[in-house]
Design a protein around this nucleic acid. Structure first.
Lengths: 351, 351
DNA sequence: TTAATTTCTGTGTACGCCCACAAAATTACA
DNA sequence: TGTAATTTTGTGGGCGTACACAGAAATTAA
């Protein structure tokens, strides 16, 4: 092991500027109570020394405790939001040495009241930062206003709402990902095929508004590149499977020339199952998100492409952004689109 | 900011086991000089306390300096290896607080002697760890043997050689990525089209042996899924462009039914340029790696799919693996395949 | 000019861990 | 049994930063 060249420390700056470490520290953190002349001396020294704070020492000495609240939809094992949660946990572990504590509050993404309750609980706990997907727009805007009043920074996941002073957003460019779905599907069916578009409702509610945008992107691409291609939309109900099967059967007999389907949420494995029961496995399927069950369908060639968006990374980066802001006043870029991953049978094991 | 629950420190273990911090420390790092009875006491305490060392404090106190050498091919701006280098630099910055110093040695990947010289220089500097792509097999094996003798851990990038006790490997499953290239290409040309496969030589040398495996994977997939599809291979010379153009022209007039091409290295933008000059822009192109120039071709629809392998992440993770091993004795999994990214015009800006 | 404030500055301790060194306990050997 | 050698254990200083507190200097009030 070699000898290390010297690294500039606060002590070095103090020495160079002829002041004490305490004063340098005050300047570095603009804590005030520094005379103009001292301020200048320190800044001069700083200019010629390229000081980078030792984050380890800083973390060690910091006595600040940070309490975050993550509000995410309830999930079952294997669901999309489980992966988000696992990213959050990973960040949590990494930051726990910095005295970061995270509480997770779950809500029903199809139920406004459940969401409202989660917001209220959160406010009552007066956390230092909040992470959540703003599914219900009005409610979320009201919530962010209150967070602002209390000076609590927050991060959006999955969906974005403009004109809130959100610290950062992590999610996918859904419109674009819809276009990619179209491109991929049209590369495996012919241009005058008919396409079925799936959306899922519960309590008359769509859940994430991602799916709307994906559909728009899909239609936009079709319109631009395959104007002869016809589509029709099928609304499924998240709970009534037997009814769904009937609906689907009806649609497909009305549109026998259907050659491809797209499911704009993570539930493509369900549609796949229906298609299997109906005996229409000739239909090409494009879906979203790498759930275990989708993965299995992909490997059995029942789904042909999956489009993924790294949910774990979203959770991870969201928490990190909050922590870095609260601990080190670090700014992050506001809108952070995740990569749009194209997954096929052959590359899914390397994700 | 909230109050923190207690976290177990070495001091707590010392207290519980009735011994001093020094002894606990010795047990934790198996530094020896601990009596069997004390050893057991500490282990008992450890078992019921779930101790996690504070990496920040540990890093701070550690006076170890680490000197790594990265041996990578010379590159021009925009080349593949520039991105690897940038990953290495990122890791370097992150670890510099831990007293990690990195030297980079460049060699000519098409020249055995240049490689040999790089190895010799490296050994003469007796570093603490080495990162390199083992392009020349024999030479690399000899090198790893010497590293072993000196107890210097090393990491492979890009290519892998079995039966060396390499610490970790970061790269792509090239065979599989070749199969994906085939799948994607065949989704946009018809099954009885003819396909041209490109490889690049310099001094009669292929450089990375990735390209061989990619080709194998490609042919394997074709054979399994499109047995009627014919291919032919074109060997280009990395330097003589005019000659290349002639070769290509000849091949294409010999095989007029050619509908698709694959370039198994990162130089697809060159082939694209040739095709443009020849006036065969109807031919579909699949290439590798997101160079700026490839990206431009993709956006102009001159390349249809790019397959990427996160070179920056490879460099980054390689350095990290070495550091974590040297600093914290942490083991990493040996073979780490990077995701095989499928890139199209529509998702390239989100990479 | 002195006292009372206010502003500014330096010092010291703590964070948790590592490690060198000293001190204590054990063993070996005469 | 005593002394030396060896093993085992405890102690203390230091890593670079944050922050509280005391003390000094400057300002204001009287």
């Amino acid at each position: 092991m070699k000898k290390a060249p010297e690294k500039t420390r606060i002590k070095d700056i103090a020495l160079l500027s002829g002041l004490s470490e305490g004063t340098v520290d005050r300047v570095l953190h603009n804590r005030g109570n520094v005379s103009v002349s001292s301020q200048k001396k320190v800044e001069d020294a700083l200019a010629q020394m390229d000081y980078k704070p030792n984050v380890y020492a800083s973390a060690l000495a910091q006595k600040k405790k940070i309490h975050l609240i993550c509000i995410i939809p309830k999930y079952n094992p294997g669901d999309y939001w489980e992966r988000v949660a696992s990213g959050i946990n990973k960040a949590h572990e990494e930051m726990s040495m910095l005295n970061v504590y995270i509480n997770t509050i779950y809500f029903d993404q199809y139920d406004l009241f459940s969401c409202r309750k989660a917001f209220e609980t959160t406010l009552s706990l007066s956390p230092d930062g909040v992470l959540f997907p703003p599914f219900f727009k009005e409610e979320s805007v009201a919530f962010t206003a209150k967070l602002n009043d209390s000076g609590i920074p927050f991060v959006f996941l999955d969906s974005y709402i403009a004109d809130t002073n959100v610290l950062a957003y992590y999610g996918q460019d859904s419109f674009r990902s819809g276009a990619i779905a179209a491109k991929l599907l049209m590369s495996i069916v012919d241009s005058n095929a008919k396409i079925a578009l799936f959306q899922t409702y519960r309590n008359g509610n769509l859940g994430s508004n991602q799916t709307k945008e994906r559909k728009n992107g899909f239609l936009d691409y079709l319109n631009a590149h395959h104007p002869t291609c016809k589509t029709f939309t099928i609304g499924l109900n998240a709970t009534e499977h037997n009814k769904n099967l009937e609906i689907l059967k009806q649609h497909l007999s009305d549109n026998p020339e259907t050659k491809g389907v797209v499911i704009f949420n993570s539930l493509s494995y369900i549609v796949t199952k229906y298609l299997k029961e109906i005996g229409r496995q000739d239909i090409k399927v494009i879906g979203y998100d790498i759930l275990q069950r989708n993965k299995e369908c992909l490997l059995r060639d029942e789904i042909h492409y999956l489009i993924a968006q790294r949910p774990d990374e979203q959770g991870y980066l969201g928490v990190k952004a909050l922590c870095e802001n609260l601990l080190f006043n670090r700014e992050t870029s506001k809108i952070n689109y995740m990569p749009i991953d194209i997954i096929v049978k052959e590359n899914i094991e390397y994700c």
